[in-house]
């Protein structure tokens, strides 16, 4: 399976003065790597996928494919979508509505260029259907399926191709939370067993953390940071990345606020403390007052007021607490993130 390198990808829509949808995006996808592109709506993540697949023509930049052969990386940016051997799963599934599930799965295999025999197609389809638990749904029409089943058909349609690279555009966005959790595991397992590269686009940081070999954080058309999930979580390059991961969100304090709370300071302007980094101790004379208490099962989420500074803190459920209780707070200096902006 080849590795890919995206270099200086720029895509502009509409008038020349507008901010480009993608602005010099560069990154690499290793062979068999699952890269998650994390970004908010409008960050350019879908445009990025469409450019890699060839559906969107970039204004500048190159897409290089390195199959590991002696000829080295090949520039594939001028190839049409069907020449790139990538499979894409769309956010809205895009199943062919007048075809049965089976026909939908077989569709990508029927292209003449592949030259597959009917038997081969049949075998691949039933294998994919079995992998995805769709064997008993093969004769149904897509309109009779549930959201999760439709999504599995869409994934199956990408799967049968055995592409060199998977492109997934928020495939789980329209599914309910429980199903999404299960599908994340399924996708992860499938990608591992196939051993092919995958670029997975999402705005959901939990999805990103649980899937990714590496996360690429995209904001307003630019790459903010790229790295393994724990690195992005522990060492975000700035407050935008820090805020994007973790729920409840990170507490960002100015150095003045940090000073008031007696935290060790550095020359950086911002301090970030994750909710779980705080050590909470009940103390009737403590400076922190609980204003909101949420029981989330495995943990409690508190909103604390420390002399006018509002903090989000998680605590073990063994800590009996109600609104109005007072606390003492502590934090390991190693858990404090110092950020420029």
């Amino acid at each position: 399976m080849p590795a890919y390198e995206i270099a200086g990808l720029t895509v502009a829509f509409g008038n020349a003065g507008a901010r480009p949808a993608l602005d010099g995006v560069s990154f690499k996808v290793g062979a068999g790597e699952l890269l998650v592109v994390l970004g908010r709506t409008g960050s350019g993540k879908t445009t990025l996928l469409r450019s890699i697949s060839g559906l969107q023509k970039p204004a500048a930049g190159r897409i290089l494919e390195d199959g590991g052969g002696p000829q080295g990386p090949v520039d594939i940016s001028s190839l049409p979508p069907h020449g790139r051997d990538m499979a894409m799963v769309f956010q809205n599934f895009s199943l062919y509505p007048r075809m049965s599930v089976k026909e939908n799965l077989a569709f990508p295999l029927r292209a003449k260029a592949l030259g597959l025999s009917a038997g081969e197609i049949e075998a691949r389809v039933s294998q994919a259907a079995e992998t995805l638990g769709l064997s008993d749904k093969l004769c149904r029409s897509p309109t009779e399926l549930s959201g999760g089943e439709m999504q599995r058909v869409a994934i199956g349609r990408a799967l049968v191709r055995r592409p060199r690279l998977f492109l997934m555009d928020e495939p789980l966005a329209s599914l309910d939370a429980k199903l999404r959790e299960r599908m994340v595991l399924e996708i992860r397992g499938l990608q591992r067993s196939l051993g092919c590269g995958m670029i997975y686009v999402t705005h959901d940081h939990v999805e990103a953390m649980s899937l990714a070999d590496r996360i690429l954080v995209l904001d307003r058309g630019k790459v903010l940071q790229a790295g393994p999930p724990e690195e992005i979580y522990r060492h975000p390059c700035d407050s935008r990345v820090a805020r994007m991961l973790g729920r409840p969100g990170i507490n960002l304090l100015t150095s003045e606020e940090g000073g008031r709370m007696g935290l060790p300071l550095s020359e950086k302007r911002l301090l970030g403390v994750r909710p779980e980094s705080w050590r909470v101790t009940a103390d009737p004379a403590g400076p922190a007052v609980a204003s909101v208490v949420e029981h989330l099962g495995p943990q409690m989420a508190l909103v604390l007021d420390v002399q006018g500074i509002v903090l989000r803190v998680t605590a073990p459920p063994s800590l009996r607490v109600k609104a109005g209780d007072r606390f003492r707070l502590g934090v390991d200096p190693a858990d404090i993130l110092y950020l420029d902006r």
């Binding site: 469409r50 697949s53 060839g54 559906l55 049409p80 979508p81 069907h82 990538m86 499979a87 894409m88 769309f90 809205n92 895009s94 062919y96 569709f107 990508p108 029927r110 292209a111 003449k112 260029a113 592949l114 349609r157 191709r161």
Partner: peptide
């Protein structure tokens, strides 16, 4: 998107 899906799927 159906046409785009078909295009990626190498449909003529």
């Amino acid at each position: 998107t159906l046409y785009e899906a078909a295009e990626v799927d190498r449909a003529g």
